[in-house]
Design a protein around this nucleic acid. Structure first.
Lengths: 357, 357
DNA sequence: CTGAAAGCGCTAACAC
DNA sequence: GTGTTAGCGCTTTCAG
């Protein structure tokens, strides 16, 4: 009964130690730890008990080396605390555990030219079975990813920024959200809708702008000049200060809630009432949206659903390399109408069509 | 010049392949890749070129297996998009890359009894050289961490929730922040300050409460009953609805900005003016704080500094197991006075001392 | 300064 | 059902 290789204490127990304690081969321990079949219940129990007694934990590095799979997924994030990216990351985090994968996170360093490419590279370097790219923003240079990405990639909230063998996307909902917002405003009777856009480098910003533009066109409305913001309340405030002087403005769609809140602040300071004089809509439904003055009409973002749906499809792609990808499932648009929108001040008559093509 | 082991294409190149191409031993490649000294410049360059040509990337799993070190740090987060935890995570992410470590993230699943213990366990399981625990909340049960944590641990924003061999902390600033807020309000002439606290299970909530309480006591002021919130604007709103009826309330310190915003909303709806009738202070300095009505007086959180300082000390503990820990460096409290605070309505006389001990 | 040999702890392929 | 034999691609000794 003497152990063949009793290890000096201080070293972590290996599967061989467990095997000896349980009186089985090392391979059997491996089978049990991996939940494989073809192990009798008695042996399985003995092994489990031995492992427990020794405080054994499987060495993932060794497993990864031997199997070539790391059982981990890498996430590329922006490294900002902006509501959208941060919420998406949380959604990914919460979901990934259920998939049985571990999570590695890197962020695209601001001001670094390598950007997404560098981040993906570093993940590949660390060893991951799949990659999630959350809301990539356009690179300064057109840095294309020269490295070969041979693992499946999930892109959240944007189309793939590079070519990879197997790519899936999720959360491409900005266009429809913008349409819902614009139509809501038009239905209230506003002759047209102004738009405070996010930075051009963000796909979500461009897509919202497109959705707004397309909707105005579809209704034959004049398209006012776009105002550019940077997602921050300060930029919304600046936009509001400019807009406040223009009496023709009756409705503004801000590309996110933060800008909407800054915008409203500027309008109020300028003596314009919201929504009596000007209606404002945001996008995100941040937690305070219902409690600012006036409570903000906005669109709730489906972060959790996007993360879940995307991850499910990424894992499918990882584990079934040859199978067809699962089709994307768009969540419904969730417009939350509160008190920042109302019919325009004077003109109750809905519209004078044909102003523009 | 024939390669000894030319590998079939399709397999990733190993250090041996690089060695053969460069005409050196495999060990020399290892030396170069690790930036060790005692390699002549010529050899180093040849190796680097060969690696580049082959598209070689070091296999971290093999390295971890051979060296016993993973060069990665694990983070335990709460998995909520609350401003504090989310911002801390971003700070950690942004900082960790500079340290040369990779980041693994797990979150304590809500409703799971194992909580922090389970999360730490799963990190240990994955293999990490150090662990960051961000704002742990108290467990339902007194689940103590039975697993042995033999890697250094950094706890952010709370005292260590369990005993580990080497623990460092950072971001224990709530107490001082609460004091600054309370003193600001007292200096404005308010006879006392009410407190809308966060959930008891959060250390930050308890510490803010303690700071507020201690400050009132130090100034010999009456301590009004504490109102409990849950960090959400909704809970702030509920608190505000109750407080609005009480004429004796002239100043409220909400434990975070979200609650402060909800609180203000309720007060305004009830016809109380802020700050003319009631002053309100939040904590966090969320991005919209300056743009709500009225602009919120609050305390800016030093998330980035906390993450940087903490991580620096964690890495020190990892790499110098026997050295003394680097002492914690508290960032200064950053009270941002805006328009939600003012002297109390009538009583210009500062105080009537000795109301309570 | 450079190299040879051994082995980290596991899984893969195949025997029994 | 279970065991045996080879490596996975590195780092670690220890020689030179």
């Amino acid at each position: 009964m003497a152990r063949l290789t009793s290890r000096s204490t201080g070293t972590a127990p290996r599967s061989l130690d467990v095997a000896q304690l349980a009186g089985v081969s090392q391979k059997t321990v491996s089978r049990v730890m991996n939940g494989e079949q073809y192990v009798s219940d008695g042996v399985r129990r003995r092994v489990l008990e031995a492992a427990e007694e020794l405080g054994y934990r499987l060495n993932h590095a060794a497993r990864a080396l031997a199997s070539g799979r790391t059982r981990s997924i890498g996430v590329v994030t922006l490294g900002t605390a902006l509501y959208g990216p941060a919420s998406l990351l949380m959604g990914v985090e919460r979901t990934v555990r259920d998939t049985g994968y571990a999570l590695r996170v890197v962020n695209t360093m601001e001001g670094d030219a390598s950007g997404v490419a560098g981040a993906v590279d570093s993940l590949l370097d660390q060893g991951v079975d799949g990659i999630v790219i959350s809301e990539p923003i356009d690179e300064d240079d057109g840095a294309d990813l020269s490295v070969r990405v041979d693992v499946p990639v999930l892109v959240l909230g944007a189309p793939p920024p590079f070519a990879a063998s197997r790519v899936v996307t999720a959360g491409l909902v900005s266009h429809q959200q913008a349409r819902a917002v614009t139509e809501h405003l038009l239905e209230l009777g506003h002759p047209t809708v102004h738009h405070l856009a996010g930075p051009r480098r963000w796909f979500a910003a461009r897509d919202r702008l497109e959705g707004w533009r397309a909707t105005l066109a579809a209704h034959g409305r004049r398209e006012p000049p776009v105002i550019m913001g940077d997602w921050s309340p300060a930029s919304g405030y600046a936009a509001g200060s400019r807009l406040a002087d223009d009496d023709s403005v009756t409705a503004v769609f801000a590309a996110n809630d933060d800008m909407a809140i800054g915008l409203i602040r500027a309008l109020l300071e300028a003596g314009r009432r919201v929504p009596e004089d000007i209606s404002v809509v945001g996008l995100d439904d941040v937690s305070v949206a219902a409690y600012v003055s006036p409570p903000l009409t906005t669109v709730r973002q489906p972060f959790e659903a996007t993360a879940q749906d995307g991850l499910k499809r990424l894992v499918h792609a990882i584990e079934n390399p040859d199978a067809d990808p699962i089709p994307e499932q768009d969540p419904p648009v969730d417009l939350v109408v509160r008190a920042s929108t109302a019919p325009p001040p004077c003109r109750t008559t809905p519209e004078s069509r044909r102003t523009t093509a």
